[in-house]
Computed example of a mutant assay.
Amino acid sequence: MIVDSHVVLASDRVIPREYLEEQAANMHHRLRAHGRDVGLGPVTDRLLALHSDHDGDRLVAEMDSAGVSLAFLVAADFSHVSPRALPPAELARLHDAVCRRHPGRFRVFWGVDPRAGADGPALFEQHVTDHGFAGMKLYPPAGYSPSDRRLYPYYEICAARGLPVLTHTGPGWAPLDFTLGPPLLVDQAARDFPGVDFILGHGGVTHVEEASYLCAHRPNVYLDVSQFPAMLAAEGWAEHLNRLFRGGISHKILFGTCWPSFRMSTSLPAVLSAFTPDTVFAGVRPSVQKMIMATTALRLVGDSVAAVTPGGHQ
């Protein structure tokens, strides 16, 4: 079984259009640097066309072709930093509709922002109750620390309901503040809420030493390896992941892709084809492979939400 612990709905209703335009500009710059005479317009048009999967049909088809049984669908709250961002209530309804359309394929990590005010925690809990969302998503580069005291009422809810917190680490969308991406910013919250499991999104790809250090010494801190196809490593991402998997924190690692971020350059089956005993998993025990690819992620969203299927309740 494969559980992808980090995917995003490829929709310009989920990712503000200006962020996609910035990404296209960065891609265009890279192509020109390598002598590819491609206009910015065609690059932007193609990227926007790939972000029209509003109902998740293409995402599920790709998961099927790659053998991914379940995915954690992360929904960041950009409503405080982008005028084009969908209001949180509409974003919640959109993700609930995707889950109802594809029952049993997703667990949603719902995005919050500490600037939502006094009503924010109650609204978060309402979405968890009404839609069966399985965890909380933070995007600190939008303008806050994951240890911001205004988030503590949310963490109290997560502690009471057994909900994990997935926090973005590393760089993000170009207009945002990358100084808020280091993993160590979650340390205070992890100490203050030992009953809450914190997952460092992209922690196996950026700030890896810092993220691994936290995972080794904080029982409630984990990392995922999402965005590994863009790993900035001379030896390549397969060798990097192999070394990470053979280290001492394999029980703290979740497989994740951040798909469909790489649709422009590869396919999901092609990415997963490297996860074999001869490449990414060389020297990694089968029991550890299972933990990384599924069982650790399932354990983190189990317990109090194990009986809830997103989009429908038992």
Rank of each mutant, 00 (worst) to 15 (best):
A216K: 07
L241P: 04
A270K: 15
V288Q: 10
S265A: 11
L232Y: 12
E235D: 15
P219Q: 12
P277L: 13
I249N: 08
H240Y: 08
W237N: 03
V221G: 08
R246I: 09
F228N: 13
C215L: 04
F275P: 05
A234M: 14
L232F: 11
E235P: 01
N220H: 07
A270W: 10
S273G: 13
C258Y: 01
L241M: 09
G248V: 07
T266G: 01
S265Y: 13
G236D: 09
I249P: 09
N220W: 12
V225D: 03
T257G: 01
L214N: 04
L214T: 09
E210V: 01
P219H: 14
H207F: 15
Q227F: 12
P277V: 13
V205R: 11
T266S: 14
R285P: 02
P229K: 01
L241S: 04
V288E: 09
V205H: 09
V208P: 03
A238Y: 01
L268S: 06
G283D: 04
Y222C: 07
L268E: 08
R243A: 14
L214S: 10
I253W: 04
G248W: 07
K252Q: 04
H217G: 05
V288L: 03
R285F: 03
W259G: 05
F262Q: 09
M231W: 06
A211L: 11
F228L: 13
V221H: 04
R243Q: 13
W237K: 03
F275S: 02
S212D: 00
G248D: 15
R243S: 12
P286G: 05
C215S: 05
S273E: 08
V271L: 15
E210C: 05
R218K: 11
F275H: 05
V205A: 09
A270R: 15
V280W: 02
H251I: 00
V288N: 00
E235M: 12
R243C: 05
V288T: 15
I253N: 02
S250K: 05
P260G: 04
T266F: 01
A211V: 11
H217W: 14
K252M: 09
L272G: 04
Q289S: 01
L272A: 03
R246W: 06
Y213G: 05
E210I: 02
L272I: 02
L254S: 09
P269V: 14
L241R: 07
K252I: 06
V280H: 06
G247N: 03
H207I: 00
T276Y: 10
R263D: 03
V284S: 06
A233K: 10
Q289I: 00
P219V: 13
A230N: 07
H251C: 02
G247L: 03
L272E: 02
R243D: 11
S250E: 12
Q289P: 00
S212N: 01
P269L: 13
S265G: 10
I249Q: 08
F262C: 05
L232H: 15
P229Q: 05
H207G: 08
S273D: 12
T279F: 03
L241I: 06
P219G: 11
P260R: 07
Q289H: 00
P229I: 04
L254K: 10
L254T: 07
H240A: 15
G203H: 06
S265K: 06
L241E: 06
T257K: 01
T279V: 12
L268H: 09
S212C: 12
T266L: 08
H207C: 10
R285Y: 00
F262M: 15
